[in-house]
């Protein structure tokens, strides 16, 4: 710490009710800034799923009026999901920066990070095993899309448990439900359903979270000096 030629501010107190509100707002603001479910990650996944699942839906969804090549649709989905994974990892690392933690906490974070990859690889390997045992191309369309969304939902619930975030639990429940319901829309309707109920809902949640967080930050910093 170094000295600065500056008049200190924020030395005065507000009335008790305002002070309690300031205390609660400040803690919420810090939690949202440290939370691994930053709104940017949510927005990234929202965009990835909207673009990715819509691309796959466009392979057959608007035929004969419009169609994109099958390979192109799946490549777009693969690329946007890879980008979302990279952004999530970078944001996860960045949120913990500047905090010296205990070995136990560091282990929890590392185990949590590994569980994401482990669960996704597990779904993929299980799918490959089922394909080797004759899973039909029709069922494959439901398995991989719903499987990954289902696993993301479960991981969100784990996020809620690890970071004590209610919002992550609600998102997790929502994702588990839409993953389970998606096959009822048939193929390729399931992709469009997931693009809207998963992707667009995530984007909407991210916008609402960003607005809430910036309002919270303004409130604790704004008219209160310091």
């Amino acid at each position: 710490m170094s000295d600065f030629d500056e008049e200190p501010t924020g030395d005065e107190a507000l009335d008790p009710a305002e002070m309690l509100r300031l205390l609660n707002d400040q803690q919420k603001s810090v939690s949202t800034q440290f939370g691994s479910m930053a709104w940017t990650v949510t927005a990234t996944w929202g965009i990835a799923w909207t673009v990715g699942f819509t691309s796959v839906w466009l392979i057959d969804g608007l035929k004969p009026a419009f169609s994109i090549p099958e390979a192109a649709g799946f490549i777009v989905l693969g690329v946007v999901v890879c980008i979302a994974v990279i952004v999530s990892v970078i944001m996860g690392i960045r949120t913990g920066r500047g905090v010296k933690t205990t070995r136990e906490e560091a282990f929890s974070s590392a185990a949590y990070g590994c569980t994401w990859s482990l669960s996704m690889i597990g779904i993929w390997l299980f799918g490959m095993a089922l394909i080797s045992q004759g899973m039909s191309p029709h069922i494959i369309q439901f398995y991989f899309s719903s499987g990954f969304v289902l696993m993301t939902g479960i991981m969100m619930a784990v996020t809620a448990a690890v970071w004590k975030m209610k919002s992550a639990l609600f998102i997790g429940i929502w994702l588990v439900v839409i993953a389970a319901v998606a096959p009822f829309f048939g193929a390729p309707g399931n992709y469009l359903f997931l693009a809207i109920s998963g992707g667009l809902v995530f984007i909407g949640f991210a916008i609402a979270a960003a607005a809430y967080n910036s309002g919270l930050k303004r409130r604790v910093q704004g008219d209160r000096r310091g």
């Binding site: 002070m19 300031l22 604790v220």
Partner: peptide
């Protein structure tokens, strides 16, 4: 005090 309450919180 507002600033110190924010820091401790």
């Amino acid at each position: 005090a507002q600033a110190r309450l924010r820091i401790t919180s």
